[in-house]
């Protein structure tokens, strides 16, 4: 479904994406994981043909650079936060995007119903909650029922309830056979949605792996995010890995997968090495094996 070969994007002297190559099969779900500035968003923009880049990329066999319009017709895009005119009404926004994708108003209404936004057509975009905006973005992405959905940190601005709604919808899409490419900072999302994880750092692929490899879930575990000073994060990650924990640095704290009844273990391990933990956040439960799609 996606073929990317040696994608490189420079902004001045900075290489935001450097020689990235990967493939995604139809029906597969791939997560992009990496620190802020790792190149996830830039890579997504290259794949959509929104910015110019070196290398080759195709969506469903259609070259993004040469036939960008046709390639984008195969993909629905959900940004981090829906960027659309605040004054526009939800209904008219849907009609506008439906006209761009050559689908009927009836299909637009049907898609709104799918994401649970029927009855909100008269509301202005600025009056929608974060969750509703994301559902609207998802509805727009699904208008023409494309086989590929590309999402750029779709839940990063949502509360737990909003996140749950969006993840549930994405799980439904996976079951329907859609191909997903998404960037995320949340291990729980990656584990519950992705087949593969592409770890990006400094614009380069570090690893092409699986969620189970990153966060083993043989036993019921929870992901704990530890906030330290930036200077001590690398050292702390090393300490925790030596203590047998699955750790990942993603620019927003240190994510550690721990058994549900031993959440304090990583804090203790760090305290032994005089590393102070500033704050702790317990992320949503990681699905136990068998709960996963």
């Amino acid at each position: 479904m996606i073929h990317a070969t040696n994608i490189t994007k420079r902004f001045g002297r900075v290489r935001a994406v450097s020689n990235v190559s990967f493939e995604i099969e139809p029906g597969e779900a791939l997560a992009l994981w990496g620190s802020n500035g790792a190149g996830k968003t830039t890579l997504i923009r290259c794949l959509l043909g929104v910015i110019r880049f070196r290398g080759r990329a195709s969506l469903g066999g259609t070259d993004v650079r040469r036939r960008g319009r046709n390639a984008r017709a195969l993909a629905g895009y959900v940004p981090q936060e829906l960027a659309f005119h605040d004054d526009a009404r939800l209904g008219s926004a849907m009609v506008f995007f439906a006209s761009l994708r050559c689908v009927s108003r009836a299909r637009a209404a049907e898609t709104l119903d799918t994401v649970g936004l029927t009855g909100h057509e008269r509301k202005r975009v600025r009056d929608l909650s974060g969750g509703m905006k994301q559902r609207l973005a998802l509805a727009i992405a699904l208008l023409s029922d494309p086989p590929l959905i590309i999402l750029d940190e779709p839940t990063s601005n949502l509360d737990a309830a909003g996140r749950g709604e969006v993840v549930e919808m994405l799980q439904r899409l996976r079951r329907a056979g859609k191909t997903l490419l998404f960037a995320s900072h949340r291990p729980d999302e990656v584990i519950s949605l992705a087949d593969r994880v592409l770890i990006l750092e400094g614009g380069k692929i570090q690893r092409d792996t699986t969620p189970l490899d990153l966060w083993p879930t043989e036993k019921p575990v929870q992901v704990v995010r530890l906030y330290l000073t930036m200077a001590s994060e690398e050292h702390a990650a090393q300490v925790l890995r030596e203590a047998g924990h699955a750790v990942h640095l993603n620019g927003q704290g240190l994510c550690v997968a721990v058994p549900r009844d031993r959440k304090a273990e990583p804090i203790h391990a760090l305290a032994m090495q005089q590393i102070e933990v500033r704050d702790i956040e317990v992320l949503d439960d990681v699905p136990a094996p068998g709960e996963k799609l």
Binding site: P26, N70, L74, C102
Partner: peptide
């Protein structure tokens, strides 16, 4: 989704994209 079904879906969407004026 089988590769065959995926290809058929892509072809139909691509034709609609090409038809888009």
């Amino acid at each position: 989704m089988t590769t065959l079904a995926a290809t058929a879906e892509l072809n139909s969407i691509e034709s609609s994209a090409l038809a888009r004026s």
